[in-house]
C-alpha cells in the first residue's frame, strides 16, 4: 500500500515538472539497544559499544558494552527494589509474571524477527517465543505454590512449634547462558524462577545474541514489574563475571558455562560473603528439563522458626 502511494506522488511531481528525481528511500528508524537499570534504559556509563554479528557476518546492532560501574549501579537498584518485591504477596508476584507473558505474547513478531536475525529459522523462532511465553506462565503459577510445598513443620523434642519456610535470598547476579542457540528462552528460564521466588536480579545477557534481552527488558518495563527487580546489562562475560561474583551486596550468583577453571575461581570468590553459587552448565532449556520448581529453590534460603507453645498434653488446656 505504502509503496503505491509513493509512486503515485512521484508521477504527479513529474507531470507538474517540478521535480523529476525519484523520491529518496525512507530512512529506517533503528532501535538503540540500551541497557536496563532500575526501570530505566540508560546507555552504559562507559560510553563503549560493540557490534555483534550473525553467522553470515551481518552486523546486528551497536550494543552497549557495559562496565563494572553499570553493574554497580544495577546492584544498587536491585537492592533498593528487594524489600518491596519480596514483600509483595506471592499471588501478586504471580499476577505480574503472568502479565509479563501477556506482554511478550503481544510482541511476538518482534522477537521472532530478532531471533531470525540471530541465525534462527522462522519456524524455530516461533517455537522458541511460544516456549518462552509458556515458561513465564509456568513460573507465574508456581509463585504462590512453591512455598507451601517446600515448607515443613518439624518434629522437635521441646515445647515449640518448629517450622521451616523458604525465603528469597536477596539480590542475585546472573550470567545468562552464552553458548546457547535459544537466546530468549534461556534468558527467560534463568530470570523467571529467581524473581518468582521474590529475589531481584542483575543479568548479563548473551554476548553474541543480545537483541532479545534488550527487547525483553522493554516487555518487563510494560508489565507492572517494579523498576530494579530485573536489571539487564549487555557486554562481555570475560570482563564482568568476576565483578558479578565479587560484589559483597550480591547474595547469590548463577553461572551457566562449563569452564571448570573459572568455576573454581567463582566458587572461591563467592566465599567472600558466602554467596550461594549455582551452576546450570548442562541444562537443556529448550525442553521440560529447563523448568522446575527446583530452579526457584536454588535462590531460596530456608528459615526455621522456633515458636514456644504450652505443653498441651500435660496441662490439658489449649493454646
Amino acid at each position: 500500500m505504502g509503496k503505491t502511494t509513493i509512486q503515485k506522488s512521484k508521477i504527479k511531481i513529474a507531470e507538474n515538472g517540478v521535480d523529476k528525481t525519484p523520491p529518496a528511500k525512507r530512512l529506517e528508524v533503528l532501535k538503540t539497544y540500551k541497557i536496563y537499570i532500575g526501570g530505566k534504559f540508560p546507555r552504559t556509563e562507559s560510553g563503549r559499544y560493540y557490534i555483534p554479528t550473525n553467522a553470515a557476518g551481518k552486523k546486528l546492532a551497536n550494543v552497549c558494552l557495559s562496565s563494572r560501574k553499570d553493574f554497580r549501579n544495577a546492584v544498587v537498584a536491585a537492592r533498593a527494589a528487594c524489600s518491596g518485591w519480596s514483600g509483595r504477596s506471592a499471588f501478586n508476584r504471580g499476577q505480574i509474571l503472568y502479565r509479563m507473558a501477556e506482554m511478550l505474547e503481544g510482541r511476538k513478531a518482534q522477537f521472532i524477527d530478532e531471533l531470525v536475525q540471530q541465525d534462527s529459522t522462522k519456524n524455530k523462532a516461533e517455537n522458541e517465543v511460544a516456549a518462552a511465553i509458556d515458561r513465564l506462565i509456568y513460573y507465574a503459577g508456581w509463585c504462590d505454590k512453591f512455598q507451601q510445598i517446600y515448607s515443613s513443620v518439624n518434629p522437635v523434642a521441646s515445647s515449640h512449634i518448629n517450622f521451616s519456610v523458604p525465603e528469597p535470598t536477596g539480590v542475585v547476579s546472573i550470567i545468562a547462558p552464552q553458548n546457547e542457540n535459544h537466546s530468549l528462552l534461556s534468558l527467560v528460564s534463568v530470570i523467571a524462577p529467581v524473581i518468582a521466588g521474590g529475589n531481584t536480579c542483575v543479568v548479563l545477557a548473551n554476548e553474541t545474541k543480545p537483541l532479545c534481552a534488550v527487547t525483553f527488558a522493554e516487555v518487563l518495563n510494560s508489565s507492572d514489574l517494579p523498576g530494579g527487580v530485573v536489571n539487564i546489562l549487555t557486554g562481555k562475560p570475560s570482563e564482568l563475571t568476576t565483578w558479578f561474583v565479587d560484589h559483597m551486596d550480591v547474595n547469590a550468583t548463577i553461572y551457566c558455562e562449563k569452564d571448570s577453571a573459572l568455576k573454581k575461581m567463582l566458587r572461591e570468590s563467592a566465599a567472600k560473603n558466602l554467596k550461594r553459587i549455582t551452576f546450570y552448565d548442562s541444562v537443556n532449556w529448550a525442553t521440560d528439563e529447563g523448568q522446575s520448581p527446583y530452579f526457584i529453590m536454588d535462590t531460596q534460603e530456608i528459615k526455621t522458626t522456633w515458636h514456644p507453645i504450652e505443653n498441651i498434653k500435660s496441662s490439658g488446656v489449649g493454646y
Binding site: R72, V75, W243, D246, H247, M248, D249, K272, N273
Partner: peptide, 9 residues
Amino acid sequence: TGVYQSANY
C-alpha cells in the same frame, strides 16, 4: 579490597 561493598557489613 577492590570489591564493591554491602551495607550489611
